[in-house]
């Protein structure tokens, strides 16, 4: 019987660990230019070829809300200092949710990377969040002071 108790204890620990790991959100980011320089930049948000939800427009809108000069659209902004690109990864758990969003900032002259902001969230952590919420988190990591 002691063996049965051990088995039950192991199963309880495993289910506890699984339950705790269900609600995880992690964020990271880095910017290689000063926030002063970033604040004066002109940004063009380039739509990802695989994005059918037009996140580019929401990213540009959320950047504008931060006081940044950002535009999205089919035509590149000719005087842009930086190009904003992104990779959105989706997963299904009774509905599609944004599993990971990585926003990258690239120098418009040579396309070298200047910064990134990333927001990853599991299904539970993503519950009730809009695209704009996730974008805000990633932008917050990118432009954090």
């Amino acid at each position: 019987m002691s063996m049965l108790k051990k088995l039950v204890a192991i199963l309880a620990v495993l289910s506890g660990a699984t339950a705790l790991s269900g609600c995880v959100a992690t964020h990271s980011g880095q910017l290689l230019i000063s926030s002063e320089v970033a604040g004066k930049g002109v940004y063009y948000v380039e739509q990802s070829a695989s994005d059918k939800r037009n996140l580019a427009a929401i990213i540009a809108e959320r950047m504008q809300a931060r006081g940044l000069n950002a535009k999205a659209g089919p035509d590149p902004v000719p005087n842009a200092d930086y190009v904003v690109t992104y990779v959105d990864k989706w997963a299904w758990d009774m509905r599609m949710y944004l599993l990971d969003l990585r926003i990258e900032l690239r120098d418009a002259k040579d396309r070298s990377i200047v910064g990134f902001g990333d927001s990853s969230q599991t299904s539970l952590a993503a519950m009730g969040k809009t695209y704009a919420d996730v974008i805000d988190v990633a932008l917050g990591e990118l432009f954090k002071k």
Partner: peptide, 29 residues
């Protein structure tokens, strides 16, 4: 030390490659 969310192998492999791009570019800038 940098930290972000982990995923399956392909996600982690991409994170590793992206960090190398970021860190090398940081030095080259």
């Amino acid at each position: 030390t940098e930290e972000q969310g982990a995923g399956f192998q392909s996600h982690n492999a991409q994170s590793a490659a992206s960090y190398f791009e970021m860190k090398f570019t940081q030095l080259a800038r």
